[in-house]
Design a protein around this nucleic acid. Structure first.
Lengths: 348, 348
DNA sequence: ACGTTTAGTCGAAACGCTTCGATAAAGATT
DNA sequence: AATCTTTATCGAAGCGTTTCGACTAAACGT
């Protein structure tokens, strides 16, 4: 493997001149630049990333702190990873994956102190997040996909849950639904201060209040069975419900089954939709699920781009962005035509 | 950030001695070792990964060549990534993601020549694979998750498709099915020499032959609509079919719908199963899908572990491993009770 | 008692780059 | 003509490690 010294020799210049030519750090005459690049081509020279990083104290490597949510990893997380990797590459950076098993923030500190990465993108942030606190404490550069409670001076991108919930409810209201259930993440996640769960919770209450609708909220773990139970509970307590918004699409199969068991049809007798779920999951269901699609690719991309801007000093003040989800109407939602006579329906 | 020189000074030894103590490269007396580690602790010293890599010519970083299959990324790929990352970390390596956009093998060459990574794990390998050919040509260390046609001297882990297909068919046969459809990946993927598609294709033919069953094969793109069409085509041409094995679970919702449109029930009138699909996807369906679950976590883990063994010279000859999928019976398969009288059934 | 290992340590030379200060030549400014 | 800039280049000193060869003193074999 040729080194910069080989190139310098062949182009008849000093090593430093080659470096300047490559990085554009200092002016180089057109003529010598040509000679240098010619020499590089002929030798098939590639700058050594480690040496470069060591000398410049900038590795051009960033880490994605890849934590699994309590409900497990899904397509959404996958898309963060791929879009983050693509964005990193386009900006001339490498992306390393720091896996979730890093529950101990001390381990995160050790990793950052290895000098391997210039900054980290944190995902699955909790309202009070150990990793974030750690990074802040040691003033290590980072951005978040998601956000914690105190976001002073931290750049982040997140889903605009407030708007998303509002639009979802509005959509159902326009279809004529007035009794709407909201199936949140699990109680455990809510109690742990998981941002999406907390924000969506408050927001849903607000929205039904201002829109003068009847809303019922329930927590639910991310399994079909939990969905089945939740749905039956909800309908026992509130038989007038005609629509449900779920935070987690993994509950939906159970709900669909519960609906079928009542002899109801979707969407004629009941409307179902999920917020922040991927098209991928929505299309796996019969009927395909109406969703608020999250802008996953943008989130991943922006997470790393904000970080890189910060690293390259193009951004002094933190940028904070909230991205809306996009309503995609599929076949699980519509005006409700169920005859709301009584509970007999359940027994037919 | 303290350096090794600071540690050496504080422990009253030479820099090289500290290095030997850390790496165990040469014997160090118990007494000085203690002093050195004490000094490291007091200073909070962390070896610099870049300097280490530069000096030792081993970065302890490996890359996962993260290519998207034509059908798009799914949970399976996600699990490769996470398990690979975990395995790397446990072995003291970092994992960088080299994204799929690297279609040009030249770009792969450039990346490898940067000296950043010691080796790469390639996934989504085609029978004749450009990336693999490239790596081989420049003798860059790598392993595969999946396998190409000529696997001489290459370490890999792959799913044992032959066995998987056989077990799937056997399972259906035991339920009494004798007319079985096989829904492969798309024609395009097959033509491109995508290993799983090719191997499964031949194997299915063999198996039905030896078991004296009637088997029909069809290619199908990875969408519900394509599944719907494929199913209808198949049943028009072969009304006696009572079961179907799909290579791709993304076709299943369409198939389920087509079945429902005939007024049939699953599994009473028709049995459905998918090979190499994640539990995650299977449980999103109603009824939950019987599958042959792939050992994704093991594949990811072994992919990196084989690579690391190779890098550390613990393996001179290539290890090649085929892992079986595990049959998970859910609710989409069972003995067929449909009255196979005629096509009237369609019109009921 | 005398070469020969062996354990433990040191100093210096890499590793392949970036960056700083210096320098010479050319251009601009008085 | 003398001085100040600017442009283009060079050489050398890092960056923080590993690794090689050398050295000392103790242990060993005969």
């Amino acid at each position: 493997m040729p080194t910069i010294a080989d190139v310098a020799k062949r182009a008849n210049v000093a090593v430093s001149t080659v470096s300047y030519a490559i990085n554009g750090t200092r002016p180089i005459s057109e003529e010598t630049r040509q000679r240098i690049f010619a020499a590089m081509d002929e030798l098939g020279y590639r700058p050594n990333a480690l040496a470069r990083g060591l000398a410049s104290k900038r590795s051009r490597i960033i880490a994605l702190l890849f934590a699994a949510p309590e409900r497990g990893l899904g397509i959404t997380e996958l898309e963060f990873v791929t879009s983050a990797a693509d964005a990193a590459k386009e900006n001339g950076y490498h992306l390393v994956l720091w896996s979730s098993e890093m529950n101990d923030p001390e381990e995160l500190r050790r990793f950052t102190q290895q000098g391997l990465v210039d900054g980290v993108v944190v995902m699955e942030v909790h309202l009070d997040d150990n990793h974030v606190n750690m990074l802040r404490e040691i003033s290590f550069p980072f951005t978040m996909i998601g956000r914690c409670a105190d976001t002073d001076d931290i750049s982040y991108v997140d889903i605009h849950f407030e708007q998303t919930i509002k639009e979802a409810v509005q959509y159902l209201a326009e279809l004529g639904h007035t009794n709407i259930a909201f199936l949140n993440h699990s109680q455990a996640e809510f109690d742990a201060g998981y941002g999406p769960a907390v924000r969506a919770h408050t927001r849903f209450a607000q929205v039904v209040e201002t829109m003068e609708l009847t809303g019922v909220t329930r927590f639910c773990r991310a399994t079909p069975l939990a969905g089945w139970e939740a749905f039956n509970d909800l309908l026992t307590a509130h038989p007038d419900l005609t629509a449900l918004v779920a935070m987690n699409d993994r509950t939906i199969p159970g709900i669909m089954q519960a609906i079928a068991e009542r002899g109801w049809r979707i969407p004629d007798d009941f409307s179902l939709m999920s917020v922040v779920s991927s098209a991928r999951a929505a299309e796996m269901m019969v009927p395909p699920l109406t969703t608020m699609d999250p802008p996953t690719a943008e989130l991943g991309r922006l997470g790393v781009e904000l970080l890189i801007q910060q690293l390259e000093g193009q951004a002094q003040n933190a940028s904070q962005m909230l991205l809306p989800c996009r309503l995609v109407v599929r076949d699980s939602s519509g005006p409700c035509r169920r005859i709301q006579s009584s509970k007999q329906v359940e027994d037919q």
